[in-house]
C-alpha cells in the first residue's frame, strides 16, 4: 500500500485518536487531541503543496492556531479550574474501548473501499477511512466517558473526522466556509465551557451520567 504524505498524516491522526480512548486523564486526552489536530493541519498543508492551492495553507494555519492550540488550552484551563483531572469512565473500560476503536479503525478501511468513487482527482480511500475512523472514535469517546469536558473533546474529534472526510474527498471546502466552521467551533467550545461551569455550579459535579435525574 503506497501512501502519500497527507494520507500518512491523517492515518496517524486517526491512530492517535484511537489512543486517546486509552487514558482517562483529561490532560493526556487533550494533549493527544492537540497532536491529532496538528497532524491534520500538517496533512492540509501537504495537500496544499500537492495541489498548489494557496487557500489550504491558510486553512492549515487557522486549524493549527485555533483547534490545535487555543481550544485544548482553553479546555485544560477549564479542567484546572474545576479541579477535574480524571474522567470516571462509563460502562466500557478505557483499554477495551481503545481496542474496540482500533478494530473499528480497520473496519473503516473496509467501509471506505465501498464508498462510490467520484473519480475526481484527490479522492483517496485511506483518507476517507481515516475520516470515518475519527468520527467513530469521537462517538465512542462520547459514549464511554462521563465528564462534560470529555464530551466536548469527543465532539471535537468528530468534527476533525468530518473535516478530514471533506478534505480528502472534495479537496476541502472553500476558505470562507472553513473559516466560518472554525469560528463556529470556537464559539461552540466557549459556550460549552460556560455551560460546564454552570453545571458545576448548580449540581456540584460535571458527571453527565447523572443528568438523567433531570427526567420527570
Amino acid at each position: 500500500m503506497n501512501l502519500s504524505a497527507p494520507e500518512l498524516c491523517l492515518l496517524m491522526a486517526a491512530l492517535v485518536a484511537c489512543l486517546t480512548l486509552g487514558s482517562l486523564h483529561l490532560s493526556v486526552n487533550l494533549g493527544l487531541f492537540a497532536i491529532e489536530t496538528v497532524l491534520i493541519a500538517l496533512a492540509t498543508a501537504f495537500m496544499g503543496g500537492i495541489t498548489g492551492d494557496r487557500e489550504l495553507y491558510v486553512i492549515a494555519l487557522l486549524i493549527f492556531c485555533f483547534k490545535a492550540f487555543t481550544v485544548p488550552l482553553f479546555l485544560s484551563w477549564i479542567s484546572d479550574k474545576l479541579m477535574a483531572q480524571r474522567d470516571i469512565g462509563s460502562f466500557l473500560p478505557a483499554p477495551l474501548s481503545m481496542h474496540l476503536c482500533l478494530i473499528l479503525f480497520v473496519l473503516s478501511f473496509a467501509l471506505a473501499k465501498e464508498i462510490p468513487v467520484s473519480h475526481a482527482a484527490g479522492h483517496s480511500w485511506p483518507g476517507a477511512s481515516a475520516g470515518i475512523s475519527l468520527l467513530l472514535s469521537g462517538l465512542i469517546l462520547m459514549l464511554a466517558r462521563r465528564l462534560a469536558i470529555s464530551q466536548v473533546v469527543g465532539f471535537l474529534v468528530i468534527e476533525n473526522g468530518i473535516y478530514t472526510f471533506a478534505l480528502t474527498q472534495t479537496r476541502g471546502m472553500p476558505l470562507m466556509v472553513e473559516m466560518g466552521i472554525l469560528l463556529d467551533l470556537l464559539v461552540a467550545v466557549m459556550v460549552a465551557g460556560l455551560l460546564i461551569f454552570k453545571i458545576q455550579k448548580n449540581f456540584e459535579h460535571i458527571d453527565i451520567a447523572q443528568l438523567k435525574d433531570l427526567r420527570d
Binding site: 491512530l15 481496542h99 482500533l102
Partner: peptide, 10 residues
C-alpha cells in the same frame, strides 16, 4: 497489559 495488546494490535 491492555496497552501491550494495543501495541500488538497496531
Amino acid at each position: 497489559v491492555a496497552y501491550i495488546v494495543t501495541v500488538s494490535l497496531i
